[in-house]
Each structure stands twice: as C-alpha cells, then as structure tokens.
Amino acid sequence: MDETGKELVLALYDYQEKSPREVTMKKGDILTLLNSTNKDWWKVEVKITVNGKTYERQGAVPAAYVKKL
C-alpha cells in the first residue's frame, strides 16, 4: 500500500497499450491498483513524468502482467 492506503501492484512485464482504455507500463513499474474485480484486466493508475511534470493516467492492464505488493 502507498501512503494514502491504496493498494500497489508491480509490473512483471512490459505492456504497450492497444486502445485508449489501456495504459502502457514497463517491467518494474509500481502502479496504483484502482479495481481488480475483473479477473483478466485490472484498472490501474500510472504516474508519467514528462519534462519534469508528473501526470496521472488511469487505464486497464492485463492482470497476469502485474502482481499485488
């Protein structure tokens, strides 16, 4: 869990989004888990830093590609 009490997951593999509802992640990324009720796809929040600014993006990733921490 992070400092706000939200559950975290670890990306076990790289994943490139294939639709606007998904998010890209790299192996080793730590993501915030938002919903894991679907056994195949979990909704997560990814933090992306671009030019020193951090953005948050929500989307789905394959459940088999992440592990709860």
Results as ranks from 00 to 15, higher is better:
Lys18Cys: 10
Thr4Ile: 12
Val9Thr: 01
Thr37Met: 10
Gly5Asn: 12
Tyr65Val: 07
Val46Tyr: 08
Lys67Ser: 09
Lys39Asn: 11
Thr4Glu: 13
Tyr55His: 09
Thr32Asp: 03
Val66Ala: 00
Gln16His: 13
Lys47Gln: 12
Lys26Leu: 07
Gly5Pro: 14
Tyr65Ile: 08
Lys53Asn: 11
Thr37Ser: 14
Met25Ser: 00
Asn35Pro: 02
Asp2Ile: 14
Ile48Gln: 07
Asp2Val: 14
Pro62Asp: 05
Trp42Ile: 05
Leu8Asp: 03
Tyr55Leu: 11
Leu10Asn: 02
Arg21Asn: 15
Lys53Met: 13
Lys26Glu: 04
Glu56Gly: 11
Trp41Tyr: 06
Lys26Cys: 11
Asp14Leu: 04
Lys43Met: 15
Ala64Gly: 11
Gly28Trp: 04
Lys68Asn: 06
Pro20Gln: 09
Arg57Glu: 03
Gln58Ala: 11
Thr37Phe: 08
Val44Thr: 00
Leu31Glu: 01
Glu7Leu: 10
Ser19Trp: 05
Ile30Phe: 04
Met1Pro: 13
Arg57Asp: 03
Tyr13Met: 11
Trp41Lys: 00
Trp42Asn: 00
Gly52Thr: 03
Glu45Ile: 12
Lys26Ala: 07
Thr32Val: 15
Met1Thr: 13
Ala63Asp: 05
Leu12Ala: 03
Tyr15Phe: 06
Lys27Tyr: 03
Leu33Lys: 01
Tyr65Arg: 06
Lys47Gly: 05
Leu69Ser: 01
Thr24Asp: 01
Tyr55Ala: 08
Arg57Val: 09
Gly28Thr: 02
Pro62His: 04
Ala64Gln: 11
Gln16Leu: 12
Gly52Pro: 01
Lys43Val: 15
Met1Asp: 13
Met1Ala: 13
Ile48Ser: 06
Gly52Ala: 04
Ala60Cys: 15
Lys53Trp: 08
Thr49Glu: 11
Tyr55Thr: 11
Asp40Arg: 11
Lys6Gln: 11
Leu8Ser: 07
Val46Pro: 00
Lys39Ser: 12
Ser19Arg: 06
Trp42Ser: 00
Val9Phe: 03
Thr32Lys: 11
Thr54Met: 09
Lys68Val: 11
Val9Pro: 01
Lys67Val: 15
Glu7His: 12
Val66Met: 06
Lys6Val: 13
Glu3Trp: 12
Met25Cys: 05
Leu31Asn: 00
Trp41Arg: 01
Asn51Arg: 07
Ala11Ser: 05
Val61Leu: 02
Gly28Ile: 03
Met25Phe: 11
Glu56Tyr: 15
Leu12Gln: 02
Ile30Gln: 02
Met1Ser: 13
Trp42Val: 07
Thr24Trp: 04
Lys18Ser: 09
Leu12Trp: 04
Glu22Ile: 04
Tyr15Lys: 00
Gly52Trp: 03
Tyr15Thr: 00
Asp2Ala: 13
Val61Gly: 01
Ile48Leu: 09
Leu12Pro: 00
Leu10His: 02
Val23His: 02
Glu17Arg: 14
Thr49Lys: 09
Val44Ile: 05
Lys47Asp: 02
Trp42Met: 02
Glu7Val: 14
Lys39Gln: 10
Val66Tyr: 03
Glu7Gln: 14
Leu33Gln: 01
Leu8Val: 08
Tyr15Pro: 02
Glu3Met: 14
Pro62Asn: 04
Tyr55Ile: 14
Val23Ala: 05
Thr37Cys: 15
Leu8Met: 11
Val50Asp: 07
Tyr13Ala: 11
Thr32Asn: 06
Asp14Met: 04
Glu22Gln: 10
Asp40Lys: 11
Glu22Thr: 06
Asn35Phe: 04
Lys6Asp: 09
Thr54Val: 12
Leu12Met: 08
Asp40Ile: 14
Ala64Cys: 15
Lys53Gln: 13
Glu45Ser: 15
Gln16Pro: 05
Val46Gly: 04
